[in-house]
């Protein structure tokens, strides 16, 4: 939870994304307690109601669960769940935007595939070095 907040995106969405990022990067482990609403509010200087909204999104999507009187915990299987959802978003959002930009620059499908191949082989080279 060390990212910084930007002004241009809903704060509660940023809070839920930051927690997800921490789960993906093993900064928060499954079955581990996540920071409380008040801890988040204090750390980021945000309204506790906003922090709670961010946490609740993750409860609704089955990433976190509540232990009564103790706090919020990372659900078992949360990491895989986040990964598969983000993979879906990757094709829906990133790839779509990417193709729109390509279209506005009149880049053909073949050109795109060549570009991707080239980028991949560059990476393979640096990785084997």
């Amino acid at each position: 939870m060390n990212e910084i907040l930007t002004q241009e995106k809903s704060i509660y969405l940023q809070i839920s994304e930051m927690i997800e990022n921490d789960i993906l990067r093993d900064i928060l482990l499954e079955e581990e307690k996540v920071p409380s609403t008040n801890e988040l509010a204090r750390q980021y200087a945000i309204n506790p109601a906003t922090a709670a909204k961010g946490i609740n999104i993750l409860v609704d999507t089955g990433i976190l669960y509540k232990k009564r009187g103790i706090g919020m915990f990372v659900e078992k299987g949360a990491k895989e769940k986040i990964r598969s959802r983000r993979k879906e978003e990757f094709s829906k959002v990133f790839v779509k935007r990417f193709l729109e930009e390509a279209k506005s620059l009149s880049i053909t499908k073949e050109e795109i595939i060549t570009m991707i191949d080239k980028e991949y082989s560059k990476r393979e080279l640096t990785e084997t070095e």
Binding site: L5, Q7, I11, Y44, A45, I46, N47, A49, T50
Partner: peptide, 8 residues
């Protein structure tokens, strides 16, 4: 800008 996140 600084206060926006504090206000419910």
């Amino acid at each position: 800008e600084e206060a926006a996140n504090i206000f419910e």
